[in-house]
Simulated assay, not measured.
Amino acid sequence: MQSILLRYWLSGSKAMTSPTTCGPALVQGRRLAPDTDTLTVAILGVPRGGTTMVAGAAIRCGLPIGTSLPGNLEDPDFVGGDLARLEAAVVKRNASLKVWGWKYPRAAGYLPHLLPKLRNPRIVMVWRDLMATAARRIARGDPIYDVFLTASRIQKRNLALMAAAPCPILHVSYEKAILDPEPFVEMLAAFVGGKLPADMNELRAFMQPGSYKPVESSELILAGASAPDQQATAGSRENEPA
């Protein structure tokens, strides 16, 4: 059953100018267009901030985010800040897919330039406790101040994008999402133009830290595109989400 927020967002005739809370996720920006068959989704946050968990859930909802992906589910075509390469990748994906996306925690660094090139863009912004995102670097001996400063700067860039982006943004609390998967994945599926995964038990197991595992490519096919172009593979992870 759709949440009250989601039903309002999908059916309302006016744009919402302020976020509305809804458990593990909230939506910001203009209302969604449920009848659209063309959209592009960027998943971002901070490194070690839960974006891999969210990307894996999005794949299970039917969103193609690349092929032959590494364990962190980051498509090499969208890693880094080479604008010419990024624009070429967008043109290529638009030519073969109506609905597609990608995951890159630092995407806010180039999205202001790339957004005008995207068709019906939507952003999924993942938030996680700062100390949790910094835990690995602190454990290996990096100065705590430097680690916190780096993560804070990335979050500041995300906030700037949040303030300026003209498209809908789904804000996800990593901590709340893993504790309450159903409402999280319900909103994610609607936001990315997909549907709820057939096997929610598998999704719950996947979402637990340290348990990431592959999904079958046959689960990733969306209507309106050929099967080879709509496939993606989520790799296994042995450590906490990125």
Rank of each mutant, 00 (worst) to 15 (best):
K195L: 01
L44N: 05
K103E: 04
G50D: 09
Y212P: 01
P209S: 08
N120M: 02
D129I: 07
S3Q: 10
R60L: 04
Q231N: 08
P24R: 05
A164C: 10
A205N: 10
W127G: 12
W102A: 07
M162G: 10
T20I: 14
I65W: 02
S226E: 13
A42W: 00
T233I: 14
Q208M: 14
L220H: 07
L32G: 03
G71P: 01
L118V: 00
D180I: 03
E175F: 07
P166F: 01
F148N: 10
G45E: 02
P183K: 11
F148K: 14
W102M: 09
Y212I: 02
S13P: 14
S11Y: 06
M207D: 04
A108R: 01
T20Q: 12
A227K: 05
P121R: 00
S217H: 08
M1R: 15
P183R: 10
E219A: 08
D77T: 07
A55H: 00
D82F: 04
M1D: 15
S18T: 11
A160D: 15
T38S: 01
I178R: 07
P34Y: 06
Q155W: 01
R30I: 05
D180W: 05
G23M: 12
P166W: 03
Y8A: 15
P183M: 11
V215W: 03
L6R: 12
R7W: 14
E238R: 12
I138F: 04
I123P: 00
V27H: 03
M200A: 06
V91P: 05
R137K: 13
S217T: 13
R136C: 02
G193I: 00
G235C: 01
V124H: 00
N94L: 06
A134F: 02
A232W: 03
K176M: 10
V147R: 04
L161M: 08
P183L: 11
Q208A: 12
L170S: 06
L161V: 09
G66C: 07
A165L: 04
R93T: 06
Q208Y: 09
G49K: 01
I138P: 02
V27G: 10
W127T: 14
L188Q: 05
L149P: 00
Q208G: 04
G194Q: 08
R140T: 14
R48K: 08
A164R: 13
S18L: 11
N120S: 12
Q155G: 07
E216K: 07
I43T: 08
A88G: 13
A42E: 00
A58S: 10
R85G: 03
R48L: 05
A160M: 09
R157T: 14
A198G: 02
L44A: 05
F206K: 03
L159N: 13
G224T: 06
V27P: 06
T21L: 15
I154R: 05
I221D: 13
T21H: 15
V124N: 01
R204N: 08
V126L: 02
L115W: 01
